[in-house]
Simulated assay, not measured.
Amino acid sequence: MILNDLKRINAKLLIQENEPLAHYTYTKTGGNADYFIRPKTSEEAAQVVKYCHDNHVPLTVLGNGSNLIIKDGGIRGVVLHLDLLDHIKRENTTIIAGSGAKLIQVSKAALDFQLSGLEFACGIPGSVGGALYMNAGAYGGEISDVLEEATVLTMSGELLQLNRKQLKAQYRHSTIAEKNYIVLEGKFALTLKEHVIIEAKMAELTEARESKQPLEYPSCGSVFKRPPGFFAGKLIQDSKLQGESIGGAQVSMKHAGFIVNTGDATATDYLRLIQHVQQIVFDKFGVLLETEVKIIGEDAKERTKNFDK
């Protein structure tokens, strides 16, 4: 029913049934999506969102899948993957980038345009949409520092323009997450600077990242938020949890704040190891580590039938 309905609305929609979501996450884990849709334009995205709202179809939006764990039972209803909304263009000293554009590519475009402000993002593997959703940051910079405006869809399909003040960005949080808005585009206000200076800063940050982070294995990035007054990685390290494994998921030996897939991990392995780390750190230091990684979907043992079957 959903497939036929959507094809009637727009015959050009790219729709796949029972698509394995492990193909789209950095952990290389996760179950299937009932319906997986890749809109080619903002208009197509709005059509799908409005259909799902009007027909009470569950809708999940997927970005680059870098700071995400999708459970082994997969996701019911429609998964909207925005990777094709990946345009990047310059307007004077601003860059406008689509939700699906990779943040690393946007930072490289800024370098080409000799625009400074996105150097901190040169190693963040997420998409523009995901970065705005969680106010991503690294090495002392955050997306909210340079974000001028965001174009979003509400879950009913209404188009909105949000300025910096309306985004109410905080550490790993924003109005976009609070209201469950769907990012279509971000506009970044940058400053002119010499190419060589921007490039040197990006090279410095890239070296720092490559020397500290376990990039040789699939992972979901930084698993835990920074607790007030502490560093999550240090707490995990001091709890002697580095190298601890459940199934194919392992607390990285290179950076304790990362959990890597050593080859055959499942999402369930990841979740069990996250809970184990939280318990041990709490028992030892009295600090409850909150997850930064987003966890969605159904457990395999609770897997329900496809939404409209």
Results as ranks from 00 to 15, higher is better:
Pro218Ser: 01
Thr304Ile: 09
Ala131Cys: 15
Thr175His: 09
Phe36Gly: 03
Pro227Glu: 12
Leu205Ile: 12
Leu160Asp: 10
Thr60His: 11
Asp308Trp: 11
Leu289Lys: 05
Lys89Gly: 01
Val146Glu: 09
Pro39Asp: 01
Leu14Pro: 00
Ala189Asn: 09
Gln170Glu: 15
His53Tyr: 07
Arg209Trp: 08
Gln161Ala: 12
Val61Gly: 10
Leu14Thr: 00
Glu149His: 03
Pro228Gly: 11
Gln279Val: 04
Ile96Asn: 01
Val223His: 08
Phe307Cys: 09
Met134Gln: 13
Met253Val: 10
Phe120Trp: 12
Val260Leu: 06
Ala200Ile: 10
Val260Ile: 08
Arg38Ile: 02
Gln237Ala: 07
Leu288Gln: 09
Met1Gly: 11
Gly157Arg: 01
Ala45Ser: 07
Gly31His: 13
Asn180Gly: 14
Lys89Phe: 05
Gln278Glu: 05
Thr268Met: 12
Glu178Lys: 09
Ala300Arg: 12
Gln170Gly: 15
Gly286Thr: 04
Leu184Ile: 04
Glu149Val: 03
Asn4Glu: 10
Asn4Phe: 08
Leu82Ala: 07
Ala232Tyr: 12
Met155Asp: 09
Ile88Arg: 00
Thr291Asp: 06
Ile95Tyr: 06
Ala33Phe: 10
His276Asp: 11
Asn163Gln: 02
His173Lys: 12
Phe231Trp: 13
Ser116Ala: 15
Ala200Cys: 14
Leu159Asn: 07
Gly31Tyr: 11
Thr25His: 07
Leu153Ser: 06
Gln237Trp: 14
Ile296Phe: 13
Gly137Ala: 14
Ala22Met: 08
Ile96Val: 09
Lys301Cys: 15
His276Gly: 06
Ile75Arg: 10
Glu298Trp: 15
Arg272Gly: 02
Gln278Ile: 03
Asp5His: 03
Phe36Pro: 00
Ile280Ser: 03
Arg76Ser: 15
Ile75Gly: 13
Thr304Cys: 10
Gly77Glu: 13
Glu43Gly: 01
His81Lys: 01
Leu103Ala: 12
Val287Lys: 01
Lys309Met: 11
Asp269Gly: 07
Arg209Met: 07
Ala232Cys: 11
Ile246Cys: 08
Leu235Gln: 03
Val293Met: 03
Phe230Asn: 14
Lys165Arg: 04
Glu210Pro: 02
